[in-house]
Computed example of a mutant assay.
Amino acid sequence: MKSVHGLCERCERPGYIVHHKKELAPNNINDPNITLNHDNLEYLCLDCHNAEHDFNREKKSATKKGYRFNDKGELVPTT
């Protein structure tokens, strides 16, 4: 976050969350080359992070079926 001055690496608005470019999965969650490697991390604002996951939703949802993230980043039921 310090290296990008706290700004989103895509739109340069204030950042909010560290995004893993290579998605975390059960087979790599304990691999520091994936989880902690700066080349796999990107600091994003909430809008850019949500857009990234909305884009990838067709391939695989980031949440359990029937749930979504709200504007505050909280996991909530879709109903």
Rank of each mutant, 00 (worst) to 15 (best):
N37T: 09
D54E: 10
K59I: 07
H49R: 05
D47Y: 15
Y43W: 15
A25K: 12
P77A: 00
I29Y: 02
E58Y: 03
V18T: 13
E58I: 02
A62H: 00
N30L: 02
H49D: 09
D39M: 06
P14S: 13
N37W: 07
R13P: 06
K21T: 09
K60N: 09
N37F: 01
A62W: 08
A25S: 15
K59T: 09
N40F: 05
H5N: 14
H5P: 11
Y67G: 03
R68V: 04
K22C: 02
Y16E: 09
Y43T: 11
N50T: 15
V18N: 15
I34H: 00
M1E: 10
K22L: 01
E58N: 03
L36Y: 06
R68F: 02
F55K: 14
G6C: 12
G6M: 09
H53S: 08
H20T: 00
D71K: 12
P32G: 12
F69D: 05
V18G: 10
R10C: 07
K21P: 08
P32S: 12
D47T: 14
L44M: 06
C8T: 13
A51Y: 04
K59S: 02
D71Y: 01
E12P: 10
E12A: 13
T79N: 06
D71F: 07
R13M: 03
L44I: 14
I29D: 01
C45D: 08
T35R: 03
H5S: 14
H53V: 09
K72A: 13
T35P: 04
K60D: 11
D39Y: 11
L46A: 04
K60Y: 11
A62G: 03
F69E: 12
N50H: 15
Y43H: 09
H19I: 14
K22Y: 03
K65W: 02
K2R: 11
R68E: 05
A51L: 07
E23L: 04
I29K: 04
P26C: 00
L7H: 08
C11I: 10
D71S: 05
I17N: 00
E42A: 05
N27C: 05
K64N: 05
F69I: 07
N28A: 00
H5Q: 15
P77L: 04
N56Q: 10
C8Q: 12
Y43Q: 12
D47V: 12
T35Y: 08
K64R: 07
E42P: 09
G73Y: 02
N40E: 01
K2I: 13
K65M: 07
P77R: 07
D47W: 05
C48Q: 09
N40A: 02
S3R: 15
P77M: 06
S3A: 13
T79G: 02
D47I: 13
K2N: 14
L75N: 05
T79Q: 10
P32Q: 00
C11A: 13
A62T: 11
D31W: 01
L24E: 11
P26R: 11
N28V: 00
K65C: 05
